[in-house]
Amino acid sequence: MKILEATSLAKRFGPVQAVADVSLTVRQGEIAGLLGPNGAGKSTTLHMLLGLVTPDSGTIRMFGLDLARHRTEVLSQVNFSASYLGLPGVLHVREVLDSFARMYGLRQPRERVDEIVELLEIGPLLRRKVIELSSGQQTRIQLAKALLNDPRLLILDEPTAALDPDAGDRIRGLLVRVARESGKALLITSHNMREVERMCDRIHFISGGRIVATGTAAELASDFGVEDLEEVFLKVARQGSIHI
């Protein structure tokens, strides 16, 4: 079952064609990776999928609904976390999560926050101000926020960028289980190729604003005639618009 279906997305900012032609799908329970070098169009694509940027052309359907026409219904079933986003710094973690739980229209916001706190083991952080947390702890709070509404599609931009290897590994494990056990779909960007190899069922490579390759990590390595995903990345980054 397709959770996300983006067709022929294009976006130009002045003289820059940020996204030229991106089509991708994410299925229920699938962890999809969106990889590409800096400036390839990853963030613009994600932001189009989240309704933050309006595409010049193309369509985005999630859960069978057109994002442009059913924004509220779609966004109530989606969530997002990115390492570059912040949260209100003066608030206690509990207050941040409580307020976002309400903003997602949850019936029992406090109970849901308690569940997520237990899941992410962030109980000791609840009474601390966001601004006092380390970047790794803030990332965990962002992830907690992103799981509050039990989203059918979770979009993560560099989810473990600010985490140490141990915390990163734990979060990766958690995300994999979220997808496997609850059937959530995940769409992830990352520059950590090992992470992507371990987590993603399918990987979309984007370069020059176009999807230039799609497949599993093994398929992509085979198609490109290289050993692993990192070498695929290097080939895509250095040769630009290779089409497989």
């Binding site: 949850l106 899941l119 799981l147 039990d150 494990g173 609850s182």
Partner: peptide
């Protein structure tokens, strides 16, 4: 929590259809 996702899971991953209005 482990990377293969084999650990016991908290109850928060239940189907969330009734979670929100």
């Amino acid at each position: 929590v482990s990377t293969n996702g084999s650990a016991e899971f908290a109850p928060s991953l239940r189907a969330g259809t009734a979670l929100a209005f």
